[in-house]
């Protein structure tokens, strides 16, 4: 990690700990802030948080490894989580899954080589009446069909880089 990056992280964590309090109970809010801004909770970040909250780094690692939405290593810019529970399964999540894999050229649990997309399974998004449902970062999409999968991925691609629609910022989160 570059020294400048490390310094920025150090200052950011300091600010978040000041905001949420330097107690054990602040651990998850602080980790969520890091996840939101940095897309990952790096080795250095875990140790810095542990030091500030007076707990052990391995305890922070334990928490990060427990929650699906906290990640020790950055995944893609867009993390697509497809619901795999019963009602989504019955409304055709398998076809959606195959379409996602084909369009992105990766399997579930993998990240595209350009680092833009990750595919994950999710267990129930609470949209059982509107399945199949999927989550792109923190946005839910319901009644997804193989056809709409293509549009969704195109929309993601257009939201950053040279294809970005004018006026939209690069990062979506």
């Amino acid at each position: 990690m570059l020294v400048t990056e490390r310094l920025r992280l150090h200052d950011d964590i300091g600010a978040w700990v000041a905001k949420h309090g330097a107690t054990r109970a602040a651990l998850i809010p602080v980790l969520q802030e890091i996840q939101r801004s940095y897309n990952e909770i790096s080795e250095y970040a875990m140790q810095e948080v542990a030091d500030r909250l007076d707990i052990h780094p391995v305890e922070v690692y334990s928490v990060v490894s427990f929650y699906s939405f906290l990640e020790a290593k950055a995944r893609g810019r867009f993390v697509i989580r497809l619901c795999r529970t019963v009602s989504c399964d019955m409304t055709g999540k398998d076809r959606v899954a195959r379409q996602l894999e084909n369009d992105l050229g990766i399997r579930f649990g993998e990240t595209t080589r350009d680092g833009n997309f990750s595919l994950e399974w999710a267990n129930c998004l609470g949209m059982c009446d509107q399945g199949p449902a999927l989550l792109i970062n923190d946005q839910v999409f319901t009644s997804v069909t193989p056809e709409t999968v293509h549009d969704l991925i195109q929309a993601c691609r257009k939201s950053f880089g040279p294809l970005a629609v004018q006026g939209q910022k690069g990062r979506t989160h």
């Binding site: 052990h56 391995v58 427990f66």
Partner: peptide, 8 residues
Amino acid sequence: GVLEAVGR
């Protein structure tokens, strides 16, 4: 603080 339960 070396060992802790990791994962789920």
